[in-house]
Design a protein around this nucleic acid. Structure first.
Length: 577
RNA sequence: GCGCUUGUAGCUCAACUGGAUAGAGCGCCUGACUUCGGAUCAGGAGGUUCUGGGUUCGACUCCUAGCAGGCGCACCA
């Protein structure tokens, strides 16, 4: 029920008809022709650029061309009140009120599916996000990408695509060795009273390691904690398990649940890395060579080494990338290539990765590897979530792991709450840096757009409460013999944009459009609500304490869309606030 | 030095895959509560969309050359 698509299809049909009759020239592709939402000032419901797009190829002025389309559009369509041709060549369509009665009838009947693009092919998606190192709790920096990934997944699911949410666990490599050592030293601190070396930069200083150590000691009474060499493998497993447990709790408090956790270590031990290297070697994407130092930096201690390299420059990367360290261990990149081979083997239609801004430089090489592995058949879509700039006391707040003064997901949820965190982190484009003003979010929560949208839903719910009508049940209206006023049609128009909003959000993977849309819808609703102050006719509940059918489903239609939208964002819609 | 990315009202941000006279919130000014919930609403002021060129019927959007901020540029992950 996307009215813009419906009319676009109708327009294209008219064009093909005309072209068959030889009355018009068409380009090979009709892509540029659109049915759009007109700016509010034009007092129309749908506009199309068809005449302007076709003007050149037909050697006619857009206005002239538009005039020939108008009667054809009007023909056999008695829902159209008026069609205007405006300045540059737009064709503006205005519907009769009965159109909107039909419209609301349709979307109430299909309230569960309204907004879903039913014409679109349904695909199988894999989305990898968060994938933070299993060395400690999540902090605010992880939050934005986590929410971005989760909402993209929700969006795709809403549109009936199949989605698998995955977390890649980097439980292999130097970081993990350092992490395990750190846990071990905390164990020694507890058991043998040896102070933890605070000044060693390789170690993880956070106090949470004390908890990890305690948990490990308590549940492994028979372990020989005296001898690190003996227990290091087991301790690594136990330590990363502790960290993952904490990370999962953090994710949960954000409302995020992954379907799979894929272990890097397992990929290595299953020889999957070795296999993928062999595979790429056969395809000539791997050679032994040296990497040059980057220009313009102090490279005094740069050592050129001959090592195994992947030819990512074949795909536009600025240098080839190392796969193996000098001690023979695989680089992070090598096992990630194996991981992506693993993804490809599972036959998804699309692979999506959500990365933090600090890993943006990594995109070229990993997407190169996917191209090489899939013979360019599968494209890896990488979405970067830009940094969150924390503001505290009106000043930027720098997090420092070493000092331990960083804000964790826990802190954030406790102070701001899950819903506000999700809504605010999502309320703007992920391409732009985000100012997250801690104080203003906490203190002046009234200014929070989340509450503005929730309040709209709560107000509608309060009407149902006052009328003793079950808000959550479906409403059946038999008599649709009514027409909506201009104020109401304004809101219905906004509701008609909902499927378009979903479409664009998915096609561009820009979920921030959802909260932005919801805010606009809520704003129209609040305006309408306040009209009732001066004009009792505009109130929902009349003097007899009853409500007209047309107003009842009008409210229902609005609340349905708000609910769908808030579900996608992953925040609650309380009936009372 | 190179790569990626951002630059829109005083501040924080939108702008529907290139559409029309660029929109919101905050802040500032003026107004609306014996109300279906004021966590709301109505109105006002505020713009050379960083700069210069180009493509186009049409550019905040695309190309190009700059400027400014952010991120990255080892065998870290």
């Amino acid at each position: 029920m996307n009215i813009f698509d419906q009319y676009l299809i109708r327009i294209k049909k008219i064009l093909l008809d005309l072209s068959q009759k030889g009355m018009i020239e068409l380009p090979n592709e009709l892509e540029g022709i659109t049915a759009e939402i007109p700016p509010p000032k034009f007092n129309c419901d749908i506009s199309t650029n068809v005449a302007m797009v076709l003007s050149k190829i037909n050697k006619k002025s857009p206005i002239e061309l538009a005039e020939t389309f108008v009667p054809l559009l009007k023909k056999d369509d008695d829902l159209i009140k008026q069609i205007d041709v405006i300045k540059p060549g737009f064709i503006n369509i205005k519907f009769k009120p009965i159109f909107w009665t039909n419209f609301i009838k349709e979307i109430i009947k299909n309230s569960k599916t309204y907004g879903i693009n039913t014409n679109e092919k349904k695909n199988n998606y894999l989305i990898e996000f968060v994938s933070a190192n299993p060395t400690g709790p999540l902090h605010v920096g992880h939050c934005r990408g986590a929410i971005l990934g989760d909402v993209i997944a929700k969006l795709l699911s809403f549109n009936k695509h199949k989605v698998t949410k995955e977390y890649y666990v980097n439980d292999y490599g130097n970081q993990i060795i350092n992490f395990t050592k750190s846990v071990y030293l905390r164990v020694r601190e507890i058991k043998f009273n040896e102070p933890f070396p605070k000044d060693n930069e390789d170690l993880y200083p956070g106090d949470y390691l004390i908890n990890f150590a305690n948990n490990i000691i308590n549940s492994n009474k028979n372990m020989d904690f005296e001898n690190f060499e003996k227990i290091s493998n087991e301790l690594t497993v136990l330590s990363t398990e502790e960290a993952l447990k904490l990370i999962k709790i953090n994710l949960n408090s954000l409302g995020i649940i992954h379907d799979n956790f894929v272990s890097e270590k397992k990929l290595v031990s299953n020889q999957e890395v070795q296999k993928v290297i062999d595979y790429l070697q056969k395809k000539n994407f791997i050679y032994k060579g040296k990497i040059k130092a980057p220009a313009g930096e102090d490279n005094d201690n740069w050592v050129e080494r001959e090592q195994l390299l992947f030819k990512s420059t074949d795909f536009g990367d600025d240098k080839d990338r190392a796969l193996q360290k000098s001690d023979g261990a695989w680089t992070y990149f090598a096992s990630d290539v194996a991981y992506h081979k693993n993804k490809l083997d599972r036959k998804f239609d699309y692979l999506i990765n959500i990365l933090g801004a600090d890993h943006a430089g990594y995109i070229k090489r990993i997407s190169s590897s996917v191209e090489a592995l899939s013979s360019s058949k599968v494209k890896l879509i990488c979405k970067v979530s830009q940094l969150v700039k924390l503001i505290k006391d009106k000043k930027p707040f720098k997090m420092s792991k070493r000092k331990g003064d960083y804000i964790t997901v826990d802190d954030l949820i406790n102070e701001v709450g899950k819903d506000a965190t999700r809504f605010i982190m999502l309320n703007r484009s992920s391409d732009a840096e985000l100012d997250f003003d801690f104080d203003s979010v906490i203190e002046k929560s009234k200014d929070n757009p989340l509450y503005y949208v929730q309040y709209c839903y709560a107000r509608i719910s309060s009407i149902f409460r006052n009328l003793n009508i079950d808000f959550t049940s479906n409403i059946e209206i038999k008599d649709y013999n009514f027409e909506y006023s201009n104020d109401e049609i304004n809101i219905l128009k906004k509701i008609s944009e909902w499927p378009k909003c979903i479409d664009t959000s998915i096609n561009k993977l820009e979920p921030h459009r959802i909260p932005v849309y919801l805010y606009e819808l809520a704003s129209l609703f609040h305006s309408y609500w306040n009209l009732g102050k001066d004009n009792p006719e505009k109130r929902f509940i009349n003097n007899e304490k009853k409500i007209d059918n047309q107003k009842l489903i009008f409210l229902k239609a609005i609340s349905n869309v708000v609910k769908s939208g808030m579900d996608i964002v992953g925040v609650s819609t309380p009936e009372k606030m």
